[in-house]
Structure formats: C-alpha cells, structure tokens
Design a protein around this nucleic acid. Sequence first.
DNA 1: ATAGATTGCGTGCATCATGCAAGTATGTAT
DNA 2: ATACATACTTGCATGATGCACGCAATCTAT
Lengths: 151, 151
Amino acid sequence: MHAFMRIGRRMKAAAGQHNQPIDHSVIAALHALRCSSGAVRLSELATLIGLDASTASRLVRTLESDGLVDRTPDPDDRRASRVELTEAGIARLDEFSRHRQELLTAAMHGWNTSDIETFATLMGRFADGVNQVADERGNPRGTNTSDKENR
Amino acid sequence: MHAFMRIGRRMKAAAGQHNQPIDHSVIAALHALRCSSGAVRLSELATLIGLDASTASRLVRTLESDGLVDRTPDPDDRRASRVELTEAGIARLDEFSRHRQELLTAAMHGWNTSDIETFATLMGRFADGVNQVADERGNPRGTNTSDKENR
DNA sequence: ATAGATTGCGTGCATCATGCAAGTATGTAT
DNA sequence: ATACATACTTGCATGATGCACGCAATCTAT
C-alpha cells in the first residue's frame, strides 16, 4: 500500500521518456477526437483534454497544418469550427497505440495470461476510482492543492 | 489488454490535476534525496531525477531558499556541493505522501484487502518491467522516439 | 427591431520548466 | 607546468501553457 507513490512516479517517469509533453497534448487531442465520433467544437475539445481554449486553438492550428485534423466551419454557428480527424490523424494515433502496446507487451513479458487479465481488471477499476475521486473534488485545472508555496 | 493506453492516459491526467509540473520535479528531487541516504552531489541528483545539471542547479537553489534542502560544500572537492534534506524537506515529502496516500485510499474505496494486495503486487511487477524496458532501450532524456514530426 | 449579454474563437503577453552552450573554478594526469 | 576533465553556474532560447482581451456571431429581452 505504501509503494504506490513510488510506482506511480516511476511509471510516469518511464512514460515521460517516450511521450514528450507536446505529444501528450497532441495524443490527448487525437484520442478525444476519435472518441467523440464526428465533429467537435474547439471549446469542447479544450474541455475534453483539460486545456485552455487558447491553447486548444493553437494546438488545432498546428494539428491542421500537420494534416492530422480537418477543420470545417460550423454550418449552424458561423463563429464555431468543427474539428475532425483525418486519415493521417487516425494513422498517427494508431501508430502511437501500436508503440504503446508494444511497450506494454515488452514490459509484461513473461506474465501469464491470468495475471495480465486480473491486472487489467484491477487497473481499470483503479482508473475509474481515480477519475471518480478527481471529479468529485473538482479540480478544474487551475485549482492547485499543494502548489501554494512551492516556488 | 487493449484498455491499457486509455487507463494510462487517464491516470496521468488524473494525477496531473494534483501535481503541477514544478511539483513533479520538486518531489522527484526530495524523493531522490531521501532514498540516497545522506549527502548527494548536484550532478548525481540531476542524473537521479533525469534532469539537466543546470536545471538541477536552479532547482536546488530554490529548494535551498525554501529551506527544504541543505547545501554544504564538499570537503574533498571544492567544486562540488552536497545536498541534503532538511527537516522541512522531509516534512514536505511526507505531506505529499500523505496527500497521495489519501487520494489512493479514496480511489480504492470499497476494495477488499486481497484485491489491493494483488494489485499492489502486479503493479510493482509492472513498474519493474516498465523500468527495465525503458533502461534497455536507453532513453537518455533527449531521445525522442515519436517526436520527429509532431509540430 | 435593437440594445445588451453571451458564446466561440484568436492574439498578445507573461510565466515557467527545461536544455544547450559558454564561463568559472577546481581537480587530475602527463 | 600545461593540457584536459569535472562540478557546477549563468545566459539564452524554446515550447507549452494560462490569462486578459478583442472581435465577430448569436441569443435574449424589451
């Protein structure tokens, strides 16, 4: 019960070696877009990935210029844009998934199937719990709990 | 097996709501210092937390001015400094641990003991695996695998 | 219909962590 | 003694981010 923090940090550290911060945002955005089937408002996307609308705006701009997303003016609301994954965007996301998957497989090399299964189950349960707690406490992305006097 | 990526991202996201990036470095440093019993070289610390020496230098400076660490000139090598946790530093780390712990407890509310135990075990195994893979592939903090054409 | 509020987005500006390159002081080896 | 290596420090650039603000489109109440 005590080792969790270390583990969490280690996992994050290990993961951090593969995904740059920018990647994180990019992937988060692509993932969000894939999940929300179809066109997504910019503001909606910002909320989904937990970023400021301005940041999302810039992010989408680069994504668009990279050809990963498609942006079309909203027919109903001429202020809004709708963002959608392109083929390239899907490909990029898939590539990332493969990479991730491969890493996981390597990390769990030698595990037996039942262990993998239970781990997956518990992990899912844990993730749900974490999400739930996070939601309950409502940390709307600017609320710093422990960052009062750290710098 | 497929859900891992989602889970990983969710966990990271959820964690990100509590620990600011700066916090991450600070905590990593404090933790590293606690683990390495006694005095630690600046460069050593930098390696431990995977940061550039310059960043570590600045980090230590702020930590020192915050009273979280103590810095003493190395008696053997007048170029080097040795860094050590202060009481306040330990307290800060403990506080963080408590916070983390509390969050975990909340997230796993309703779990039975055996589940917690197996989860902890598997998690540990998983973390080891991840670390091992990361080490094998040698990602020395500047090697971007998938960041070639993302921006 | 028209004024005022709201919404969706883009920009300017500041901040913050970080890495790299250059500098300084010290140590080591030939 | 001279050349090279080490341990930091500092200057500078970068990249992601948030906030305040502006602008245009839309909604709402009168």
